[in-house]
């Protein structure tokens, strides 16, 4: 599966956590996702490990292969290089942090093979 690139989060947005607390997107911590998922009746937290990063169809795109969840399902996504993911214990990370910072004013780390990203799945989906 290779979905088309999706838009990145609007960095100046305010996010309301499951407990009602308001935070800016750039201030979110790993614990915020974990705690919100614990409260949530619909979503649970999962992890996706970056296995490979290849260049994509266009010069500013990359194809990232993830190993998802306990079943280690292989999922590929093609995204723009500035697209940020949220890495456990590290925060927002992209393949081109400079571009992400420039475009979205979202400070970012470099996304690397082996990074474990936060993902959220619907409870009871499987």
């Amino acid at each position: 599966a290779a979905p088309s690139p999706t838009p990145a989060p609007v960095p100046s947005s305010i996010i309301q956590l499951a407990d009602g607390e308001l935070k800016r997107v750039e201030d979110l911590k790993t614990e915020d996702f974990i705690q919100s998922a614990e409260i949530s009746s619909e979503l649970k937290i999962d992890s996706s490990t970056v296995e490979r990063i290849d260049s994509g169809q266009s010069p500013n795109a990359v194809v990232i292969q993830f190993s998802v969840g306990e079943l280690k399902a292989q999922v590929c996504v093609e995204v723009l290089v500035e697209y940020p993911f949220f890495v456990f214990g590290q925060g927002w990370s992209s393949c081109c942090p400079d571009r992400t910072t420039q475009l979205f004013e979202l400070s970012c780390a470099k996304l690397c093979v082996g990074d474990v990203c936060v993902s959220l799945t619907l409870r009871g989906l499987r």
Binding site: S12, S13, I14, I15, Q16, A18, S47, V77, L120, R126
Partner: peptide, 19 residues
């Protein structure tokens, strides 16, 4: 400034097995 519920970030996170 708009306020979004936290789950609106789901599409922006890493893929899941259902993707």
């Amino acid at each position: 400034v708009p306020v979004f519920p936290w789950h609106s970030l789901v599409p922006f996170l890493a893929p899941t097995q259902s993707d």
